[in-house]
Design a protein around this nucleic acid. Structure first.
Lengths: 243, 243
DNA sequence: AAGTGGTCTAGACCACTCC
DNA sequence: GAGTGGTCTAGACCACTTG
């Protein structure tokens, strides 16, 4: 029984603008309506509208040209898979045009490794909930993902968690926790023996590995992620905007 | 003879706040002054101050807690090497605490490869300027970097370019071009034979490879980057803030 | 209850590009 | 000159946390 609060105007408008770009109402390479016109259309102030546009700018999705207008960026509009953005692997896979399938490899309580205990601020005897999944794109294995979180956060039985959902949804649904931010370490490693067959690759193949820590608003670690990406399928991409 | 324009208030305040955090005037984990107090101190409106703080928030450097205050994030304050931010490798290496040294391996005009010509919108007979550098941290080779840009952008002789500067500085100084944004493809690859000795690693070692394209405000490609990182030394890190 | 951040406005003036 | 985005203000009200 979650209370539905109306989203702030800024978020709603942000969403609408992204949708219009995605649907081609504003076409890549072309100018979109002026800030004044858009503010008038939505019945909001220009300040609010500009705030709503800010994240599109920092994503490189639109380009503002003073004295001229705002353009949809043809070099980035088709990619919604920026590293900065994605939180759900099934969405990620679907957006790139593949059919996502998830296999739950294992799920349950266990004791943490030393590294896990350290990163989650736990004592060695505090148990953790571990969720091990494999995400496939068009039946080809693409992402191996291990999530670990403190068992004491779990309220209720998580066994019937829909595996295609993200760890964000999991934490919200079963732990009443919101991820405020996360840190990721990015490495290139040799594919471990144990994962080679899972990902249908030879052991030793170079592969991208992300090690994540999730924090809540109070800056407490509430989860870990260990992810191996077959970037041949997905193409990790980063957009950096100079500000 | 470049005209110095005063920076916008927002940028100046942004700088000051980052500096205060870096210098420990605002201590990690603790509350910083309220928005009202800061706005009063700088003699600016709260709206402007919040804009100045926005990038610190999206970098995860500070955490806002409604009804409470704004805190410096102890989990990210020490790292200023977010993927989103860095543009200069010498700065990057210095910030991590190493002594940066740059070796220019080669520099000069040549014909582009087919891929380079495509990415830069050039005809095969249009020549390019290629700059090949090796960045070392405490005398240990850390980053191999190849930059390629259209020769027609070059005005003047670039032979005495200070190699420790970034490609951004190069484009500004010798091409009168500003990078508005860039895209990066992130891959894990086997270290090519030709680079193995340069980076003091065995050929075939997994290594992070970034392939960058730089664009100006008019959305024209003005440069390419090919970068191999020894992330054992540098530790690529990404901070994602949910918004 | 007091103080904090979150949202939003209406309007001003500037800098710039295009016609 | 007209129109666009860039910057900035002073103030309002709301939502929330802490004492």
């Amino acid at each position: 029984m979650t209370i539905e609060r109306p989203q702030p105007i800024v978020n709603q408008v942000n969403h609408i603008l992204r949708q219009r770009i995605r649907e081609g109402i504003y076409k890549p390479g072309l100018k979109m309506p002026s800030e004044g016109d858009l503010a008038a259309e939505f019945g909001i102030s220009r300040t609010t509208l500009r705030t709503a546009m800010a994240s599109l700018v920092s994503d490189g999705l639109i380009l503002r040209k003073q004295g001229d207008g705002t353009y949809v960026n043809q070099h980035t509009f088709e990619v919604d898979t920026y590293l900065q953005n994605f939180w759900s692997y099934t969405n990620l896979i679907a957006q790139v045009g593949y059919e996502p399938v998830v296999h739950t490899l294992s799920a349950g309580l266990r004791l943490p490794s030393q590294e896990e205990a350290t990163n989650l601020n736990l004592a060695p005897h505090d148990s953790v909930y571990a969720l091990e999944r494999l995400f496939a794109a068009n039946a080809r294995p693409a992402i191996y993902c291990l999530n670990v979180l403190p068992a004491h956060l779990l309220n209720g039985n998580a066994d019937n968690f829909s595996p295609e959902k993200s760890i964000f949804d999991f934490l919200q649904q079963y732990c009443s926790q919101e991820i405020a931010y996360s840190t990721s370490d990015i490495r290139a490693v040799s594919l471990p023996e144990a994962l080679a067959s899972l990902l249908s690759q030879k052991p030793g193949t170079p592969i991208l590995k992300f090690t994540d820590v999730f924090f809540n608003k109070n800056n407490q670690p509430i989860g870990l992620g260990l992810n191996y990406y077959d970037e041949k399928l997905l193409g990790m991409r980063l957009v950096r905007v100079r500000s």
